[in-house]
Design a protein around this nucleic acid. Sequence first.
DNA 1: CGCTAAATATGATGGGCATCATGTAAATGT
DNA 2: ACATTTACATGATGCCCATCATATTTAGCG
Lengths: 187, 187
Amino acid sequence: MKVSREQMAENRHRILDAASRLFRDKGFDAVSVAEVMKAAGLTHGGFYGHFSSKDDLIAQTLAHVLAADSGGGGDLRAYVGSYLSPRHRDNAAGGCPTAGLAAAIRHQAPAARSAMTEGLRSQIDRIGKALPGLDAADGRRAAIGSFAAMVGAVILARAIDDPAFSDEVLEQTRAWVDAGINQVSAS
Amino acid sequence: MKVSREQMAENRHRILDAASRLFRDKGFDAVSVAEVMKAAGLTHGGFYGHFSSKDDLIAQTLAHVLAADSGGGGDLRAYVGSYLSPRHRDNAAGGCPTAGLAAAIRHQAPAARSAMTEGLRSQIDRIGKALPGLDAADGRRAAIGSFAAMVGAVILARAIDDPAFSDEVLEQTRAWVDAGINQVSAS
DNA sequence: CGCTAAATATGATGGGCATCATGTAAATGT
DNA sequence: ACATTTACATGATGCCCATCATATTTAGCG
């Protein structure tokens, strides 16, 4: 059954949203095409009308979610605090796509790697601009170092099977990043 | 054909070494049991004489590689520099198992998560002890923050599909971590 | 020196999944 | 209104892989 052009666009959007959440939650390999379509309220049959392959879905999903991911627009300290929170750690499906997917990108097709690279570029640029009162070189270093620490800490916290230790990794990293930003901005 | 007891122990060791390298290189899902056995110079048949399942292999491989992973014993600055080097980024198969596998642990069985948790504990303890002249609380914060940044930077650098940007992430993170350690140790 | 148990090899088995083939019905343009 | 195109549904197909069954060889013990 054919659907209206706008219905089709909405379906495509729903597929990308569903894929985005499922991939972040379970990883690329653990999510089947049929599962994505079902989560979008469709069956697996129409999939290849929207995407040429699962790899294509992965690449387009990354472009979709990284474009939407705006974090860091406002107060940097608040952003760091919410990023390094138990809430974010426990919400991979709705959380930062970099924290959830960056490590898996290595094993994906070139288009996916390229989408992730552009997403990282803009994310780091945004953080650099949100850093107060730094010259450009210091700001960039702080943006990259802080973001690496944030991503690493969330990945480690999600891997750790001991709530107290996991919380500690988040909290100590938050303190460390805060201190680092303060030091550099005071120089 | 039965083999000697020591031959069997050596075979087991070879399986774990092969699995360790393959998992770090390609990820848990992309490596088949048969592939591991072949890399160890055996066929897939004997696998279940050594391990009860692929999950069991994963857990035992983690325990094996994390126990062997001693990095950070000597000079901390040199360790950070080699960790955040293009060489390490390009050598996932032989590199830090945390950088290669931590993000995938979330999707593994409890035994694997537990092995990773213990490995992270000892790794962070080792870094904390290698930090010169800090009181315990500052040293622990620096150890966690630095390690998170190192792991995050290597993961990001491996995801990025642009050599210059990838190098930049490594180098800026190295400078950021160095500065952070200096600041704290001067306090 | 033979007997037995164990380690590995060869060869199924069954399920899951990406992808393809075909049917169907409704949207769109004329 | 009608023809045609097209978006989606249902239902294969074939591959890969974890796991199991069985055969074979030989270590280890008496």
